[in-house]
Amino acid sequence: MDRREFLRNVTLWTAGAVIAPPVFHITPRLFAATGGRTDIYTAKGKDYKRMVNSLIDEMGGMKQFVKTGDKVVIKPNIGWDRNVEQAANTHPDVVAALALLALDAGASKVSVFDRPCNEERRCYQNSGIKPAMDRIDDGRAECTYIDDRRFVPVRIKNGKSLSEWSFYRDALESDCYINVPIAKDHGLTGLTLGMKNVMGVISGRRGRIHHNIPQNLADLNTVIRPSLTVVDATRILLENGPSGGSLSYVKTLDTIIASTDPVACDAYATTLFGMDPGDIGSTVRAYKMGLGKIDLHQCNIINVS
């Protein structure tokens, strides 16, 4: 479907939203296999870029996820006007390393974006992510601000709590979506991990998601299915999350986790906080909807460092 046709459809959908809600079809290949054992890869060390490279290497290389000419979306958490040390946003080295790997794998475009809670220019700048992406001197790599014209309504076919929400087109249309959350404390959900990171690609008053947040997040995650999830636990935020502030809430773990199973990634990351995966409502609901594994006994934890 070309852009013209796409936009015409969107216009029609929007006009007829009440009688005929739009359906954005989820391609079957994105539904990860739920049988068998899942591999969770972890790396520990100080050189985050090298750790990312080793992790992806161990998983079979970026070519497993990115084919030549693919449009790649790397979705970090750039939610807050905080610096790298304050552990409120994904580490820029992790993002940049993934972007470089995707470019090497032959991506035609690598887009990095998020819909921040604070002012976007300040977040992009002070998180260090825009400067890191700007240093990658490659026309295919871009770190762009959200363009409000590019949200499209999506009917969430498998949703149990949400039936419709608008998503960012670039995220929906990407050939490879890499979710790169940071692991941190969150007042309502206990922790914010990969499942919650999807909130950066949806539109509207996101506060409404909070009424029934575990199920809502699971529902949203039936639409955005990452090919790869990389959880940044190089430093984690233990308190005052998700925005943090004081460095006394930050614990350095020098750990990065990667898996093709978004639920297993969240489950494993939860244990780093001394919590049980079952404590996190969104992980439980996502597991129940068949989005991935929650039982770490059914996973192979592969340490690559």
């Binding site: 604070n118 007042g187 309502l188 009424h211 005052n240 502030g245 004081s246």
Partner: peptide, 19 residues
């Protein structure tokens, strides 16, 4: 109804909104 979006966004280094 669960919410506390206000607590989530509160920026002070020790949040001025608790629950």
């Amino acid at each position: 109804k669960p919410c506390i979006v206000c607590e989530e966004h509160c920026p002070t280094h020790t949040k001025a909104i608790d629950f």
